[in-house]
Amino acid sequence: MSSLVDTTSRTDILNRLKRAEGQLRGIQRMIEEGEPCLEIAGQMSAVRKALDSTYVRMTVCFMQQELQQRLELSDAREDDLAAVLADVQNLLSKVR
């Protein structure tokens, strides 16, 4: 299995994970400070959504990378693939 080689995608995914990490630290602080459970649960839900979104983004990046490599696509076909995978990402983000 390959790793993410597209630097833009890798940066995007890392930034998303860093935001989720910040949200998790905020949740820890909320628990330490005795915040209400409903507020904490709301923040946990937000982190879960952020991680789910990041997972979908990483999966689509992997699919694009692998398909481009294995199918040896022309630039025009790569644009078509990018459009299809954008639709796939949109559809997967609605699952749940």
Rank of each mutant, 00 (worst) to 15 (best):
S3K: 01
L4C: 04
V5S: 11
V5A: 11
V5D: 07
V5G: 14
D6A: 15
D6M: 01
D6Q: 13
T7W: 09
T7C: 11
T8E: 14
R10Y: 00
T11F: 15
I13W: 07
I13L: 10
N15C: 05
N15M: 04
R16D: 08
L17F: 02
L17Q: 02
L17K: 04
K18C: 09
R19I: 05
R19L: 13
R19T: 04
A20F: 04
A20E: 08
E21Y: 06
G22I: 11
G22E: 11
G22A: 07
Q23P: 00
L24N: 06
G26A: 08
G26V: 03
M30K: 09
M30N: 03
I31S: 15
E32T: 08
E32G: 15
E32N: 15
G34F: 02
E35G: 13
C37Y: 12
L38K: 06
L38G: 10
L38P: 02
E39K: 12
I40R: 04
I40C: 10
I40A: 09
A41Q: 11
G42T: 00
S45K: 14
S45Q: 13
A46F: 05
A46Q: 05
V47F: 04
V47C: 10
V47K: 13
R48C: 11
R48Y: 10
R48F: 05
R48W: 06
K49R: 15
A50S: 15
L51A: 05
L51V: 10
L51D: 01
L51H: 11
S53A: 12
S53F: 04
T54Q: 07
Y55F: 14
Y55W: 10
Y55I: 07
Y55P: 00
V56S: 12
V56T: 13
V56Y: 14
V56G: 14
V56R: 14
M58R: 14
M58T: 06
T59D: 10
T59I: 05
T59W: 09
V60A: 08
C61I: 00
C61R: 07
F62R: 08
F62S: 04
M63K: 11
M63L: 15
M63E: 05
M63R: 05
M63S: 05
M63I: 07
M63A: 13
Q64H: 12
Q64R: 15
Q64L: 12
Q64I: 01
Q65I: 02
L67D: 05
L67Y: 01
Q68V: 00
Q68W: 00
Q68Y: 05
Q68A: 00
Q69A: 10
Q69L: 07
R70E: 14
L71E: 04
E72T: 08
E72I: 05
E72C: 12
E72F: 13
L73E: 02
L73Y: 05
L73Q: 07
L73S: 02
S74Y: 01
S74K: 02
A76D: 06
A76Q: 00
A76G: 03
A76T: 03
R77Q: 15
D79I: 09
D79Q: 06
D79G: 06
D80M: 13
D80L: 11
L81G: 07
A82P: 00
A82M: 01
A83E: 11
V84I: 11
V84T: 06
V84Y: 04
L85H: 01
A86P: 02
A86G: 09
D87H: 13
V88Q: 09
Q89L: 00
N90C: 12
L92N: 13
S93I: 01
S93L: 08
K94E: 13
K94D: 06
V95H: 08
R96C: 14
R96A: 15
R96Q: 14
